[in-house]
Design a protein around this nucleic acid. Structure first.
Length: 293
DNA sequence: AAGGAATCCAACCGCTCCGTT
DNA sequence: GAACGGAGCGGTTGGATTCCT
């Protein structure tokens, strides 16, 4: 006997969410909390699968989400964690507050993967793509890279030259130069990774490895634990957070409401407790009702 | 300006894990 | 221990947008 589908396929809407659906979902969760996803769509008056609701909430509507591109530091952390954990996006996301596994996965596939390949690094193994050549190039490196961004910058002059290239011959010469730089970059990356993985005990405070060394062993042991604690640690104290939230004006329109919720991205519901949101949602949805009439 | 290619990202799908009965 | 159901995870897709010719 196969398992039942997570939802009744008939009559279940798919595709992009409308503002009205978002409103219903937010309304329901703020009122009732994140209860059973399976029954939530029905209770919330949504013709959606429970999974779809959960995904929409966790990846887009949650008020504690950060928006926009990952910072250099975040990107660096993702690379390092990926080297250790592989494609365990939820574990990686767990160390980047306000970021979702989906967002990190997308960013990896669209940005970081390409950067690593460009640098001559295998994004799966984090090993240099030209391993045999790499060792002979290692001595050339005298200045450690400080970040992925710097590695990129160092490759830029060649890219600029590439634009000037017109003949096939010129292009070939440039390609080999670029390859050299890629090898150099990947060598540095490998050294950093090795240092990071405690394969090297050298003091390398400026290297990528040093940045990654900020992640201590306790973190790694945590990452391999089965249970994942909340994204935001206990250093958040509820009264202080509530005080901050009390200073936030309740929005006057639905658009503003969405923006307001996104403005709260640095805070999680779990930081304030359901009681707090029960209070806020009263104000919030009184406003929504007024504006929708 | 047009249209094809490339890129991005929200959303879906299928699977696994884990708790409950 | 088996069966079941809910939740979460990671891979993939497809539509929208941007870039390029």
């Amino acid at each position: 006997m196969g398992r039942q589908p997570c939802c009744d396929k008939l009559g279940v809407k798919k595709g992009p969410w409308t503002a009205e659906e978002d409103k219903k979902l937010i309304n329901f969760i703020l009122t009732n909390g994140q209860c059973c996803w399976r029954t939530m769509p029905k209770l919330a008056g949504l013709r959606r699968c429970g999974k779809s609701c959960r995904l929409r909430w966790t990846n887009y509507l949650r008020p504690d989400l950060k928006r926009g591109l990952l910072s250099d530091d975040e990107e660096q952390l993702v690379i390092d964690l990926h080297a250790r954990l592989g494609n365990r996006w939820s574990k990686i996301a767990g160390r980047l507050p306000g970021r979702t596994d989906n967002e990190i996965k997308n960013h990896w596939n669209t940005h970081i993967k390409k950067k690593l390949i460009k640098m001559g690094i295998d994004p799966v193994t984090h090993e240099p793509l030209h391993k045999e050549e790499t060792h002979s190039q290692m001595e050339i490196l005298s200045q450690p890279f400080q970040s992925l961004a710097e590695i990129e910058n160092r490759t830029n002059p060649i890219q600029q030259t590439n634009v000037v290239a017109n003949t096939e011959e010129q292009t070939n010469v440039i390609a080999s130069s670029e390859e050299q730089t890629i090898i150099m970059a990947s060598s540095e990356y490998s050294c950093s990774l090795a240092a990071d993985q405690n394969l090297s005990g050298d003091d390398d405070s400026n290297s990528l490895g040093a940045i990654c060394d900020q992640i201590d062993d306790s973190l790694i042991s945590y990452l391999f634990e089965d249970e994942t604690p909340g994204l935001v640690d206990a250093s958040w104290d509820l009264p202080a957070a509530t005080e901050i939230f009390n200073k936030v004006d309740v929005p006057s329109s639905w658009d503003e409401t969405c923006a307001w919720l996104l403005d709260c991205q640095d805070f999680g519901i779990q930081d304030f407790g359901l009681d707090y949101f029960n209070d806020v949602e009263l104000k919030l949805f009184n406003q929504i009702d007024v504006n929708s009439n």
